[in-house]
Simulated scan of single mutants.
Amino acid sequence: MWDAFWQLSAVGALIMVALMALLWVLHFPLRNASIVDVGWALGLPLLAVTYAAWGPGDAMRSWTMAAMVILWGGRLGGHLAWRIFREGREEGRYRRLRAQWKTHVGVKFLAFFQAQALLDVLLAVPFLLVCLDPRPEWSTWHGLGLALWLVAVCGEALADRQLAVFKRDPANRGRVCQTGLWSWSRHPNYFFEWLFWVAVALFASGSPWGWLAWLSPALMLHFILNVTGIPPTEAQALSTKEEAYRAYQRRTSAFFPRAPRERPAGQPRTS
């Protein structure tokens, strides 16, 4: 098993390094480093398909895992690509990185893009564990994983949809979205994204060494809470609408959904 594990991991790493190098080159004429997010999202289905096609695991279970990742990552990647096309400008956190780095920005972005490639390979360990398991039996772990996956995919799609509808209304310019899922969590999209990784870990727990799969949701939670998720997103929000966003912070949970502490002024309480 471990020979196949390291061999397929090496293949996956080469694929992701090449993909991110291509996107890094492309970001110069586009003048938009936000495409790294698209590459991150679409790279995961690419790894899942690679592992399912080349791994020695049970075909039905391997391709079920691949389908789970394709549907999740394909939707997310498409959503991010459409947002870049629609807005036509680089996301705020990447503009801040340019301002902070000042010199050798291109080289630093190359390291950043390749760090995302490495992150994809690490996160894809649960996919690989499933695709290395030759046993045909399905277990309760697989059923639990599929059920939670459905909740995660639907929840993240709904959160993205609610925010997109809010932003399209000119009357909401400069305001903070506090409707629907966004009244229960300041980052419901991140919460359901993390829930996807919990679902994947559950599904992979039925495979040998399945406990390793739980490193992925733990790693993703760390990045969302402390690195590339909530901190830069909230810094951007505070820089453009500080007073309104601080009030939103006082009312609404940062990550795990819960009822808001009080009703936003002028808006009904939603669930």
Rank of each mutant, 00 (worst) to 15 (best):
W197D: 01
R168S: 05
R86W: 14
R89A: 11
A115S: 13
K102G: 04
F113W: 05
G145N: 07
T103M: 10
L97G: 01
L123W: 06
L150M: 12
L144H: 03
S139P: 04
V176I: 15
P188R: 12
P188T: 15
V151C: 05
F127T: 08
S183D: 08
A111H: 02
L146V: 14
Q162G: 02
H104Y: 09
C177G: 03
P134R: 00
A164N: 14
E87K: 10
V151G: 05
A199H: 00
D133Q: 04
F166V: 15
E193L: 04
W194H: 14
R173C: 02
A147D: 05
A99Y: 07
F196N: 05
S183R: 05
Q116I: 00
D160W: 01
Q100L: 15
W182T: 09
G143K: 05
G155R: 06
L80A: 01
G180R: 08
E90Q: 10
R175C: 09
V125M: 07
E87T: 11
R95C: 02
L163S: 07
A111Q: 07
R175T: 15
R89Q: 08
K102V: 12
H142G: 11
R89Y: 01
G145W: 05
R93W: 07
E137L: 10
G92R: 10
W138N: 13
K102A: 08
F85M: 12
A171G: 06
Q178V: 03
Q100Y: 11
Q178E: 15
D169A: 07
V107N: 01
A117V: 08
L110K: 01
H142N: 10
F109I: 06
K108N: 07
A81P: 00
W141N: 03
L146H: 02
A99D: 13
L97H: 02
K108G: 00
R93A: 03
W194I: 05
V107W: 05
Y190P: 00
C131N: 09
F196K: 01
K102N: 04
E90W: 10
W141R: 05
R168H: 12
N172I: 00
R95Y: 07
W138K: 02
W141E: 10
E91P: 02
W82Y: 07
R168C: 05
F109S: 02
K108F: 10
E193C: 03
F85Q: 13
V105D: 04
W197N: 09
L128I: 15
F127K: 00
A199E: 14
G145P: 02
W184M: 10
G88S: 06
N189S: 09
Y190G: 01
L80F: 09
G143C: 11
F127D: 04
S139V: 13
D120G: 08
L128H: 00
